[in-house]
């Protein structure tokens, strides 16, 4: 899983990436030391809240991009978990989206990673 995050982080403008479970607990992360676990889990829960709230309104919401003055947060709902990428505002979103797609497709066909997701699976609140 770490290799996948590393691949995503190679995209220009990406600051760090992480995977959290459906309740916001950190499963894996590759982020700068400035971001501690509590901060990352706060970000995760915030993203989950958004997906939960808006997802009801827009069936099949798969991707969320949050724009802040200094950062962009790109999140993808992969059902068993959430992938979150923290970026600079200038990140090339189409390039990031394709980089993420490539990693997710590899994870999907990797039984070892799927087992990790199954093990960590929790229902959303």
């Amino acid at each position: 899983m770490k290799n996948g995050l590393m691949e995503i982080n190679e995209t220009m403008g990406v600051w760090g990436s992480l995977i959290c479970d459906n309740q916001g607990a950190l499963l894996e992360d590759l982020t700068p030391p400035a971001l501690n676990k509590a901060t990352l889990e706060n970000v995760s829960r915030h993203v989950l809240d958004i997906i939960g709230t808006i997802g009801e309104d827009l069936a099949g919401l798969h991707e969320v991009v949050l724009h802040y003055k200094q950062r962009k947060v790109f999140a993808v709902d992969i059902q068993q978990a959430i992938l979150i990428v923290i970026c600079t505002p200038s990140v090339d979103i189409p390039l990031l989206r394709m980089s993420v797609n490539v990693v997710l497709a590899r994870w999907q066909s990797d039984p070892k990673i799927q087992k990790q997701f199954e093990k960590a699976f929790v229902e959303r609140v």
């Binding site: 808006i54 309104d57 827009l58 969320v64 949050l66 724009h67 802040y68």
Partner: peptide
């Protein structure tokens, strides 16, 4: 800020 619909 949250975006629910975005595109080109």
């Amino acid at each position: 800020m949250v975006e629910v619909l975005r595109g080109n």
